[in-house]
């Protein structure tokens, strides 16, 4: 068996706040990501999923502390690698980032072509005479129209800016692609197209970690789904089983899915707890109709991939037509 492209083992991140308190943003995340696989990490804003992405890229602010490990296929630990290693051999080369707001990610004062060429020179070592051709090829790979190569980022629509950013992310041929909310603010058609393209780029030899709050996007391309709630991964499941039969087994994940407008469209009662004041036991217990005294202790993410003392077993109601 080949080694996973990314192996996250007990990854935790907390922030030191003024007054010596801590905010637990990610607690004990564990998952593997194999080549050819797409894992969608879903959860609401503030659950810690973006912090997890920042940790994998070595972009945490200086008041952060980490624990655990995030190993790449060759054994590099993303959490302990120094800045030099990250900058020279990891970012772009082994981990490609598809950013949340491409318009802000692109340099506003330079054309798409010049940004592609610079990245090609830096990451792929392409020499000057071949740059033009290579830039066109890189653009084509992300379906970025060649006629728009000489435009500046602000002259691009949201969809095209996203493709330009994707083209940049793909240049280093990184085995791991990390997409942090790549579809925020895009309309449904563009969301579908963007995630389809991402899926296509994964192919057989790369892996994609898609971080999103958009369950429909996750359903469209993910092989597996990890649900994050109040800093913890509470369920990891095969996407087919999660979105279809038998459905999510963690009550929170099930509630999230049932809140979709093409399902029951009913919200989960209450609100998530503060990351600075998490309860001792299950963080979802206060909102959960299945909770009892057992939920006062923290449930482990057990073998079937659910961190719950009373997982749901009934089949999920199918979405409306």
């Amino acid at each position: 068996m080949t080694r996973p492209v990314l192996s996250v083992r007990g990854l935790s991140v907390r922030f030191r706040m003024r007054g010596g308190t801590h905010v637990a943003a990610v607690t004990d995340a564990r998952f593997d990501l194999a080549a050819g696989e797409c894992l969608a990490l879903v959860g609401e804003s503030g659950c810690g999923k973006s912090v997890l992405a920042s940790a994998l890229l070595g972009l945490l602010p200086e008041n952060a502390e980490t624990a655990g490990a995030a190993l790449l296929g060759d054994g590099t630990d993303l959490l302990t690698a120094d800045e030099r290693t990250l900058a020279r051999t990891v970012r772009g080369r082994r981990v490609g980032l598809v950013p949340q707001s491409p318009a802000a990610h692109l340099t506003p004062v330079r054309t798409v072509r010049s940004q592609l060429e610079e990245t090609l020179r830096e990451l792929a070592g392409v020499r000057r005479p071949d740059l033009r051709k290579a830039a066109a090829a890189a653009a084509e790979r992300a379906s970025f129209p060649l006629g728009h190569l000489d435009r500046y980022p602000h002259e691009l629509s949201g969809g095209l800016a996203q493709r330009a950013a994707t083209a940049l992310a793909l240049i280093g041929d990184a085995p791991l692609l990390l997409a942090d909310e790549p579809t925020t603010g895009l309309d449904r058609e563009l969301v579908d197209r963007t995630v389809d393209e991402l899926r296509r780029h994964v192919g057989d030899d790369r892996a994609l970690l898609l971080i999103t709050h958009d369950l429909a996007a996750a359903e469209r391309i993910a092989d597996r789904v990890a649900v994050m709630y109040a800093s913890r991964v509470v369920e990891i499941a095969e996407a087919d089983a999660f979105f279809g039969d038998p459905g999510p087994r963690h009550p929170y994940a099930r509630g999230l899915l049932n809140a979709l407008p093409d399902r029951e469209f009913t919200p989960i009662p209450g609100m998530p707890p503060e990351l600075s004041a998490l309860p001792e036991g299950c963080a979802f217990a206060a909102r959960c109709h299945r909770a009892d005294t057992a939920c006062g202790t923290l449930p482990a993410l057990a073998a079937p991939g659910v961190a719950c003392h009373h997982p749901v077993t009934a089949a999920l109601e199918a979405p409306r037509a």
Partner: peptide, 20 residues
């Protein structure tokens, strides 16, 4: 208590990222 590790060892991030 519930997971494999016993006692989390926290590492400061400072000194390695851009923030360094």
């Amino acid at each position: 208590g519930t997971t494999a590790d016993t006692g989390t060892v926290w590492r400061p991030v400072a000194g390695r990222s851009v923030a360094g």
